[in-house]
Structure formats: C-alpha cells, structure tokens
Design a protein around this nucleic acid. Structure first.
Lengths: 140, 140
DNA sequence: GCCTAATCGGGAACGATTACCGATTAGGCT
DNA sequence: AGCCTAATCGGTAATCGTTCCCGATTAGGC
C-alpha cells in the first residue's frame, strides 16, 4: 500500500542516479561523498561531483541511505536496503568502515527519560558506536 | 590528587587565553569557535581567529571544555568546570544552546553490550540528545 | 523524431578550519 | 629595571568539504 508511488528514486531514471546507488550498495561501510565520487571516476564513470552529492542527498531523504557524521565531522553515507527499518543506530568499525545496524530500544527509552526529567520536548538524538571489528582486530 | 601539575592551561599566562576561557564560561550552552570569536570582538577584545581556535583546542585537550558536533556538522565548545567529571553526555537545547550534563550509566552499558555481542573492541561512542528546553518551549 | 522540462557537470562561491610566519610579548635572568 | 629568548599572537593564504549557478545535455511523453 501507500509505499511506492511512481518510480524508485524520484522523477527520471538516469544512469548517474543508478551509478551512485550502485556504488553505495557495492560496499558495506559508510563512505563519504568524495570517496563515492572517486570510486565512480576510477570505475570509468562520467559523473560530476555535484551529481554525486545530489543523489546522495536524495537517497538520504527517501531513507534509502543512512548518514552519520564521524568524529572528525565528515559526512558519510551508507546504503540502507530496508526503507521500512525506521529508526536505528550503528556500530561502526573505525578501521574498515563496516557497520552493523543496531536497534537499541533501551537507548531510545533512556533518551526519552532524561529528556522528560529535564523538561525537554521535541527530542531527537545522535548515537553512534565506534570500535574495531573482530576481523580487523585479528588482522593485527 | 594528581590532577594539576604546573599551571592551569599550559605555559604562559596570556590575556587572550583568559579571554577565551571567560567567553566560554560566560554562557551556558555550546558555542562555535566563530561565535566565541565574534562575541570577543564585540566586547572589544583584540584577538585573532587563529588564537581562538588555538585556545579552544587547548581547553579541549585538557578536558576543560567539551566538544560536540551538532547535527549540521558544526563543531561547538562548552566550558566544563569539573575536569574530573570524566565521561558524560549532553542534553542540548536546539533553540538556546543550553545543555545539561547527563551521566547515563545505562547507555554506556548498552554500548558495551552490543559491541561485545558483535565482537567489536576498543569501543567508543558519540551520544548527544537534542531537544527544546522548557523555557524555550513556553516562550512560544 | 520533436519538444520541453528535468538532470548533468564544471567551476565558482562559500564557510569552517588549519597552516604559515613575521611581529609582539611574557617572564626568567642579571 | 632592563634585556633576551622563546612562546604566543594574529592577519592572510591555503585547504577541504559542500553548495550554488547556469549553460549543455538528455529522458521520455507526444
């Protein structure tokens, strides 16, 4: 029912739009717009940086991609197959960029509780967990 | 106990260093380097932008200031009187910038748990809660 | 095929932050 | 008190990521 309306992304189907989505799908972890752009060019795609940003934002808006700002303040994107997944957070590997989606009902509750305790409303939050995944750890 | 070693900040006591710290202390919420710079200039201080950044970073390194990246990716600083306070998070008002320090043992535990569950080590996390404080809410 | 509007993409513009480096200044020493 | 040296300052240029602009290109309905 009321999920899909006309076309996947938005209006016209373009090669560039597909390329950006593919580039994101092709890899596990979070990647910056610049990285996506670089890898597309490396693959021989004719695409502009502006276009990459444009599509990345579009994907974000439709919920097809997750965004996080890493500790350095860089904006990174990751494909999120399940548009209906709704709210969730990430456990991101600092070394390889790979990420696990984690639900964490407990944190949501905690956030709501302290917000209420201090009388804050319209609450929202940023929660990301960074670490070194098992593979990267053993690889040392 | 073994906290303070020689002098408060680092080396020489300078007027600019004090000015930056004062500017930060003077207000409750998180403020960007640019804002601190602007308010210092507005107060008639002769200080350079580079210097503001320098001191802000110094304060951060000594733990005298907390840093967070707001959802827009801006880096903001806040004076943290208690250097021994250790790890904590913030409940920040989106409207006035004011913030409450919250401990949240529960979240720490949650973060550690999921990290362990997925086999991640050297775990660290970013947790900030944003909302509208009571004052700002009623002011509408 | 043609036409029109949406999408591209290169480069300029932008805002935040860092780097550079000569000028200034704190403060130990005499 | 005055001097000397090294640390700090601060203006400007450089960097980096991201957005804006606008003429060129292209999808796709007719």
């Amino acid at each position: 029912m009321g999920t899909d309306e006309t076309s996947p992304t938005a209006h016209r189907a373009t090669a560039q739009g597909a390329a950006v989505r593919d580039a994101l799908t092709a890899q596990e972890g979070f990647r910056s717009a610049q990285e996506v752009y670089a890898s597309l060019r490396a693959d021989g795609h004719k695409i502009g940086l502006s276009t990459v940003y444009r599509h990345l934002q579009a994907l974000t808006e439709t919920g097809a991609a997750d965004v996080i700002h890493n500790p350095d303040g860089e904006t990174t994107y990751r494909f999120c197959g399940d548009t209906t997944a709704g709210h969730h957070h990430h456990l991101v590997c600092r070394s390889c960029g790979r990420a696990e989606e984690v639900a964490g009902r407990a944190v949501e509750r905690w956030a709501d509780e302290i917000a209420e305790k201090y009388g804050y409303t319209e609450v929202d939050h940023t929660i990301e967990v960074f670490g070194i995944c098992h593979d990267c750890a053993t690889a040392r």
